[in-house]
Each structure stands twice: as C-alpha cells, then as structure tokens.
Amino acid sequence: MKLSDDFDARRLRPRQPKHWRLRIGAALGALLATFGILLAMAGIASLAGRAPVLGTLNDSTGEAGVLLLLGLLLLWAGIAFWRSCRRRLRQPRDLALSPHLLKKRD
C-alpha cells in the first residue's frame, strides 16, 4: 500500500488530556495539609501553656483544643485530596486489553 505525502500518523492517535486541573488540585491539597499542620501546632502550643500564637483567639483550653482538632481535620482532608489527585494523575489513559486476549503463559 502506497502512503501519500500528506499522511500523518499523529492524527490517528488520541490526544493526551491536559492534567493542569489535577496538578492545581494536588497543590491545593498540599496547601490545606500545610495549613492544617500550622493550626495543629498552634493548638498544641496553646495547650502546652506557651504564649498565645493567634492572639485572643485561643486563650482558653477549649479553644486551643478546637484549633488542634481543626488543624488535624484540615491535615487529614488535605492529604486525602492530594493523594486522590496524584492517583488520578498516575492512572494510565491507554486502552486496556482483556486478560483473555493477552499472551498465554504456561
């Protein structure tokens, strides 16, 4: 079969999807985790009796405990969001073959 001069094999392949949304999501997840670490550290410092980190926001031990729990919750949510975005970034976008079509191994 003769190929013509204007044949381009790249047109036959599907375009790779752009991953910028997932990259931005992973960055936001990392920022949430960082903010959660900082809030948890502020709550721990306030519970330990150090100088108040956030001014009058955490004067009592109850408010310091709320800061600690909020920081740990943000840390967990940020890590979960970051991991889900990273998992979706690493998924293969190719066609998958059925196992019965693969080469038989004895």
Rank of each mutant, 00 (worst) to 15 (best):
I37T: 12
F7Q: 07
G65C: 12
W20Q: 07
P14G: 01
G36R: 09
L39E: 06
K18E: 15
A26I: 00
P99K: 06
G78M: 01
R13Q: 14
A51M: 09
G65T: 13
H100P: 08
N58D: 15
A51H: 07
L73C: 13
G49I: 02
V66L: 15
D106I: 06
A26L: 00
F81I: 10
R23T: 05
E63I: 06
A45Y: 10
R23H: 05
W82G: 06
A33M: 09
S46R: 07
K2M: 11
A30F: 01
P14M: 03
R87V: 04
G62K: 07
R50C: 08
T56K: 06
L12R: 11
S4H: 03
L102M: 12
I79P: 00
G49E: 12
R86Q: 14
L32A: 05
L12A: 12
P52D: 04
G49N: 11
R93G: 14
K103I: 14
G65F: 04
A33I: 07
L75T: 15
A96I: 06
L74T: 14
L57K: 02
R83N: 08
R83Y: 05
L39N: 05
C85R: 02
R23F: 01
G71E: 05
D8G: 04
A51C: 04
I24T: 15
A77K: 10
A48D: 12
A26Q: 01
F81Q: 13
M41K: 12
C85Q: 06
L22F: 02
W82C: 05
D8K: 12
P17H: 02
S46A: 15
K2Y: 09
E63L: 07
D59H: 08
M1W: 09
L54Y: 03
R15T: 10
K18L: 13
D8V: 06
S4I: 02
S98D: 06
F81V: 10
A40H: 03
W76P: 01
A40I: 03
G78W: 00
L38V: 08
R23V: 10
L22K: 01
G78A: 00
R21Y: 12
R11Q: 11
M41R: 11
L67H: 05
